[in-house]
């Protein structure tokens, strides 16, 4: 039944190449998180705004980001925009797609966190002579980030795994892209993808471990 002979040596020989790909994977994930968090804060404020003109686009973003497959979002950034004459490279399209998805999910995470902080905190800040922006920055935001921290790190893990979808828009330099190329060259499918899976696993484990350490160090209260 099984006449497949494993050839791990070939896979191990390609390890440096794959690890280099993993660096791009991390790069895209980190960038998509940084930009995603920035946009998510704006979206969260927009969704809580009393102005319909701010609320509507923010809500639309969140709805689409959370209720359509991430693969479609990346496709849209690459092939969809291409229909309108806007051509994004695979790297940029993948980054844009994941950032779009991150922003949508993180917006709701932040909004939930904001809701968990009593209004009286803001009031206390204002009564000490702080303007609304200063009170938000010094009192509300740090508390919001603590509540949102672990869910945000979950999204980071999700972002790392989502980068693998880049291969569908021709992304060739990230971990999945590199693995796919090796596979096409050698047909050692199982070995290469198993190696890639282990690398993904180790990366996400490391991220979770690091975030626990950071949380423990940062949130002493």
């Amino acid at each position: 039944m099984f006449n497949y002979t494993f050839q791990w040596r070939q896979a191990f020989r390609a390890l440096p190449e794959m690890l280099e790909g993993a660096l791009y994977t991390m790069q895209i994930a980190v960038l998509s998180m940084i930009i995603g968090i920035a946009i998510a804060v704006i979206l969260a404020v927009g969704r809580n705004s009393s102005s319909r003109w701010l609320r509507a686009p923010a809500t639309a973003w969140v709805e689409v980001a959370r209720n359509t497959p991430a693969l479609f979002q990346i496709y849209m950034a690459h092939f969809g925009l291409g229909s309108f004459g806007i051509y994004l490279s695979p790297y940029v399209a993948l980054l844009a797609g994941i950032t779009f998805n991150n922003a949508g999910y993180l917006c709701e995470t932040f909004r939930g966190a904001l809701r968990a902080i009593p209004d009286t905190q803001m009031r206390a800040g204002r009564s000490l002579g702080m303007g609304p922006a200063k009170a938000f920055r010094l009192i509300v935001m740090p508390q919001m980030f603590r509540i949102a921290f672990l869910p945000t790190m979950n999204q980071m893990v999700w972002a790392i795994l989502m980068t693998s979808l880049g291969v569908t828009v021709g992304m060739a330099i990230d971990l999945t892209g590199v693995t796919q190329a090796l596979n096409a060259r050698t047909f050692r499918t199982f070995e290469f993808f198993a190696m890639a899976a282990i690398i993904y696993y180790l990366i996400t484990k490391a991220v979770m471990l690091a975030s626990r350490l950071v949380a423990w160090r940062l949130f002493r209260y």
Binding site: T120, Q121, G125, L128, M130, L138, F219, Y221
Partner: peptide, 23 residues
């Protein structure tokens, strides 16, 4: 206020120094 509204993310000292420093 009736509800003390301590800033939970700051130490007692930081609670008290926040406004003098930042305002």
């Amino acid at each position: 206020f009736q509800q003390f509204n301590a800033f939970p993310h700051l130490t007692v000292l930081e609670n008290v120094t926040l406004a003098p420093r930042k305002v």
